[in-house]
Design a protein around this nucleic acid. Structure first.
Length: 746
DNA sequence: ACGCACCCGATTTTT
DNA sequence: TCGGGTGCGT
């Protein structure tokens, strides 16, 4: 048997003996029980702020130190790289040894790793590319054009979501009916299968493939499955409530041999239903693993009692949940403050006023504040006021660095060098910078590659054989080919560093000089971004000298913004409720509490949707340690137009004794410093039910463009009523009542 | 093939 | 409001 001692001897590590007390002393009794129960299936229900990460890290440390489990035999899966790194760091700190061999990472990165090793069996090469959303859409668009389906006005984006949904659910496309689909099922299947084939031809996988192909691998090659099943004696899963069908299946497969599976999660924090997360996975854990032990972590160490009570009063409106209630030894603390404002700018000003007030009174830093919102677009008004006020801020998320055009362009070159079969990348760069190779020419080459069943790159190699292309165009294609070939060779020889390779390439392409000539603000920005990319590559190589360009690209593909968010800066954090998960701040603002925005209108029609919005609120509220503010703006610009809204139903669900209401900020131009601040009229929350429900299921209506139809369901209150109508001509549609002129026929 | 101008459309969340 | 996509003119 392997032991840490043996391993340490081999590696020359130093082992610091730790007493039993030191490892478990910082745990409360439930936490300790959860840590010590290592065998069999374990469900650890960890409420927000109840020490979830602490239990996970101590459990791993406990396994290694006390149960003498070899780190190689532990598999720990998280959703974000940040969580994975944090976990690793904390375990290393507990044990005081480096954990090089432990399998700890995100689902996607861990299975990518397994696939890199084994995918030849499935007909992929180990250097496969990972396609992000934009790449996937580009591929689908190509297929639509290629199949002459352009006339059908198919939306590549929604097609991608469908494909993603099907893959995440781990079902075949024939099993899904999209009632309101604009295209016929047959066409959809055709596109689906072509998409899948084309991915493989390009030696590429999308995010779902990383999991789906792993399942294929395990099913088709039992010996491979057996290898990993035997290897991983202990499996730990973080944020189990966010697992989707694929992840669920993989966990189940991998744990079959040893049955030692510990999952940690909180059903109340399941907020990724839209990307396939299935809350049933955690709710049904007991049935899936009948001999499991359950541990409930309900003591919260983060928030004041008032904050917890607010969070609980919202979440207890959900029916589909496991009953539990967080408690704390902390003081009730300050009441939660609700701020009602006229519009988004006022809302932002009020927030900033509060921030400055809090800083003065409680000696806080800007970094102690987080402003949370439902949609990224909301950050703009807040940013504007923060800028005016000269306050530093960081927007977490938003336009992602690696999705910027200039970055994707450069990366497409690198991806081509790693995997010349990647047709999507080649298509992207074949005429960037402009070489006089136009859309028609590209189509011809593509057709040639399909006809001869070769990759786009091979087709370019054989360009001479394509007769319909003019010789002038051919020569620029050959020039492009020569360029790629040259760098492929340079890379192959391996005597230049990656950083050198990339910067010479960019130099030869003349991208920076071209952008400099343009001289616009945007081009200068692009130059900065490309420079930053180069720095990033350099950093990566310096930090990981043994890793290659392939590794770098994988890292880029699987990274998120929260991962590289610099928390050291003394700045106010602006982020969506989703990206706030797992974080905490002394003071938190939840903004935009209006019907249609939070809860978001698209998520208001079914109970499941609404319950997820409620969980999102719960996540947001439980981020706050000391003080929570809620805010609404009665008027908000939407699509460039002013719309007036009503206060979120969530405010009605809150226990009013826990909240203090301020209705303020009438003036458009506020001088924050001289702002006198008096709570004024008491706001009435319940927005009555005048002219309630003339619209009921079964009523016949007429819509100006869709024609006649029958109302199927009615959701939302009277101000934001959403009707699901089955139209005679166009099928089922969701209609927001106030945006259309609906006539009642009968 | 490329650039410009205009128009339209969209705005949830992300590994 | 802003950005992308389309379509037209060169």
């Amino acid at each position: 048997m392997h032991t840490v001692q043996k391993l340490a001897e081999e590696k020359g590590w130093r082992i610091v003996p730790k007493t039993n007390v030191s490892l478990l002393k910082n745990l409360n009794s439930v936490q300790r029980q959860a840590v010590e129960k290592i065998d069999g299936p374990n469900l650890i229900l960890a409420g927000a702020g109840s020490g979830k990460t602490r239990v996970l890290t101590h459990k791993i440390a406990f396994l290694i130190q006390r149960k003498k489990v070899n780190p190689e035999n532990i598999l720990a899966m998280t959703f974000t790289n940040k969580a994975a790194n944090e976990m690793k760091d904390r375990v290393e700190a507990l044990l005081d040894i480096p954990l090089k061999k432990m399998w700890i990472g995100t689902f996607h990165s861990l299975f990518a790793r397994i696939l890199r090793k084994n995918c030849e069996k499935l007909g992929y090469h180990s250097n496969f590319a990972i396609y992000d959303e934009a790449d996937q859409i580009a591929l689908i668009k190509n297929i639509i054009t290629e199949k002459n389906l352009l006339s059908q006005a198919i939306d590549a984006k929604s097609l991608r979501s469908k494909i993603k949904f099907i893959k995440n659910a781990n079902i075949s496309p024939e099993h899904v009916k999209f009632s309101s689909a604009s295209i016929s099922d047959d066409i959809f299947y055709d596109i689906y299968y072509t998409y899948q084939n084309r991915l493989q031809q390009n030696n590429a996988m999308d995010f779902e493939d990383l999991l789906l192909r792993s399942i294929d691998l395990f099913k088709l090659f039992p010996n491979v499955l057996d290898y990993y099943q035997s290897k991983f004696h202990y499996i730990l899963v973080d944020e189990y409530q966010d697992t989707n069908r694929l992840q669920y299946d993989l966990i189940k497969l991998l744990s079959q041999k040893h049955h030692n599976i510990s999952v940690v999660g909180d059903d109340d924090q399941s907020i990724y239903r839209w990307r396939g997360a299935d809350i049933k996975n955690i709710l049904d854990f007991e049935t899936d693993y009948p001999d499991c032990s359950i541990f409930r972590l309900e003591q919260n160490y983060r928030s004041t009692a008032n904050i917890l009570n607010i969070a609980h009063s919202i979440i207890s409106h959900n029916r589909n949940r496991m009953e539990k209630e967080l408690w704390t030894k902390k003081e009730p603390g300050e009441k939660v403050t609700f701020i009602l404002t006229n519009d988004a700018i006022e809302e932002a000003s009020a927030i900033i006023y509060k921030i400055e007030q809090e800083i003065q009174q409680n000696e806080l830093n800007f970094s102690d504040f987080a402003v949370l919102y439902r949609t990224n677009a909301q950050s703009r008004a807040i940013e504007e006021v923060l800028k005016n006020r000269g306050i530093n801020y960081v927007v977490v998320g938003g336009i992602r660095f690696y999705e910027r055009k200039e970055i994707k362009d450069v990366l497409a070159y690198l991806r081509t060098l790693v995997n010349p079969n990647d047709g999507i990348s080649i298509r992207r760069i074949i005429n960037y910078p402009a070489r006089g190779i136009g859309e028609t020419t590209i189509k011809k080459i593509e057709q040639f590659s399909i006809d001869n069943n070769i990759s786009l790159f091979k087709a370019i190699e054989k360009i001479e054989e394509i007769e319909s292309i003019s010789s002038r165009t051919k020569s620029s294609i050959q020039e492009f080919y020569g360029l790629i070939k040259k760098y492929l060779n340079l890379k192959l020889k391996g005597d230049v560093s990656i950083t050198e390779l990339v910067s010479t390439l960019i130099g030869e392409l003349g991208i920076l000089t071209f952008l400099k000539q343009e001289g616009s603000l945007e081009s200068l920005n692009k130059i900065d971004n490309i420079r930053e990319l180069l720095n990033g590559i350099n950093d990566f190589i310096v930090r990981n000298p043994h890793l290659t360009l392939e590794h770098y690209l994988e890292n880029v593909a699987l990274i998120t913004d929260v991962d590289n968010w610099d928390t050291r800066a003394n700045a106010v954090s602006l982020l969506t409720l989703h990206s706030a998960k797992g974080l905490e701040f002394p003071v938190v603002f939840i903004t935009g509490l209006e019907e249609g925005l939070f809860p978001l209108s698209r998520q208001m029609s079914t109970d499941e949707d609404l319950e997820e919005e409620r969980r999102l609120f719960y996540v947001g509220a439980t981020r706050a340690k000391e003080k929570l503010y809620l805010s609404s703006a009665l008027n908000r610009r939407k699509f460039g137009e002013n719309t007036s809204g009503t206060i979120s139903r969530f405010l009605n669900e809150i226990d009013k004794t826990l909240i203090e209401i301020e209705e303020t900020y009438q003036a458009r131009h506020i001088h924050l410093s001289q702002h006198s601040h008096q709570p004024k009229r008491i706001f009435k929350f319940d927005h009555g039910d005048e002219n309630e429900a003339i619209y009921k299921p079964g009523i016949l209506v007429k819509h100006p463009t869709f024609g006649k139809g029958v109302v199927r369901t009615v959701a939302g209150d009277d101000a934001n009523m959403v009707l699901n109508i089955l139209f005679e001509e166009v099928g089922a549609k969701k209609i927001v009542l106030k945006y259309c002129k609906l006539e009642i026929v009968r």
